[in-house]
């Protein structure tokens, strides 16, 4: 019975919200625009509370049963309790509870400013090290797709920073030629033929570009080329993904509001 009521609520509210976007009926529109958002606000408040209880339960169980890495759970619990005390019980400043969260004299502010903030920034900064290490090992010219990824990655990395402006047009051209030969290298039977062809192209092409006065083309300026990558291929890819997600969302929402998808209630 409990489940049926829950399904009924999901289906009823789902249809109501959907209809609110297609039918111009002020009470319904008012419900969708105002009441429903407040309901969500209240429910999300409770959800946050449930999340807190769940977190406590999880880590207390881990410590009690001495599961793997249980010692870290002690840190989580202690930090959690300390922040709860500074947030709800001990103020440390002259301002009222609530606004004290952003008041410089309060204990909560001190903890946030001196502990949480540097720790958060440190965690994110570690990414730079892992990205560097991963790019060293994983960014390899294995096939055509990997090469495309590599080219885009290099041009974006250099083009997004001021140093990209310092790269002269001929160097960009030489990079293109080098990458072209990296892609077609396997088609050459004779290694020497490939080497001579590459060196010849690397000498001849800049002269040809100079002769036709094409050195100002955007493709030879890394910052402009990276802007093009972002504006055209990246946009096309992102739009395709977005449309795919939107269609998937419609299909999933349809399944939920017609009661076909029951996993949302833990079935």
């Amino acid at each position: 019975m409990k489940r049926k009521i829950a399904y009924f609520l999901v289906v009823f509210i789902g249809f109501l919200t959907l209809l609110g976007h297609f039918i111009s009926y002020p009470p319904l529109n008012n419900f969708i625009d105002n009441d429903a958002t407040q309901w969500f606000d209240i429910i999300s408040g409770f959800a946050a509370f449930l999340g807190v209880i769940n977190l406590l339960q999880l880590h207390l169980n881990k410590v009690a049963n001495k599961r793997s890495n249980w010692k870290f759970s002690i840190f989580t619990l202690v930090s959690f309790i300390v922040m709860i005390i500074f947030g709800f019980i001990y103020n440390g400043s002259n301002v009222a509870m609530g606004p004290h969260l952003k008041e410089e004299g309060s204990a909560f502010y001190w903890m946030f400013h001196n502990i949480y903030l540097p720790l958060g920034a440190t965690m994110f900064a570690l990414l730079a090290f892992f990205v560097a290490s991963a790019s060293y090992r994983a960014f390899k010219i294995r096939n055509f797709e990997a090469t495309l990824l590599l080219i885009s990655g290099i041009f974006l990395m250099i083009g997004r920073v001021p140093i990209g402006q310092l790269v002269p047009w001929w160097m960009s051209l030489e990079i293109y030629i080098f990458l072209l030969f990296a892609i077609i290298a396997s088609r050459f039977k004779e290694k020497k033929t490939m080497l001579y062809s590459m060196i010849g192209t690397m000498i001849f092409m800049p002269l040809l570009i100079l002769f036709f006065n094409l050195s100002d083309l955007g493709i030879f300026k890394i910052p402009e080329f990276q802007e093009w990558i972002m504006a055209v291929p990246a946009t096309a890819g992102s739009r395709a993904i977005m449309i795919g997600i939107a269609l998937g969302t419609i299909a999933q929402s349809y399944r939920i509001i017609t009661g076909r998808e029951r996993s949302i209630l833990g079935d």
Partner: peptide, 12 residues
């Protein structure tokens, strides 16, 4: 960024 690009080239 420049260093990462150098790493990528060396890696390749």
């Amino acid at each position: 960024h420049l260093l990462m690009v150098i790493f990528i080239i060396l890696g390749n």
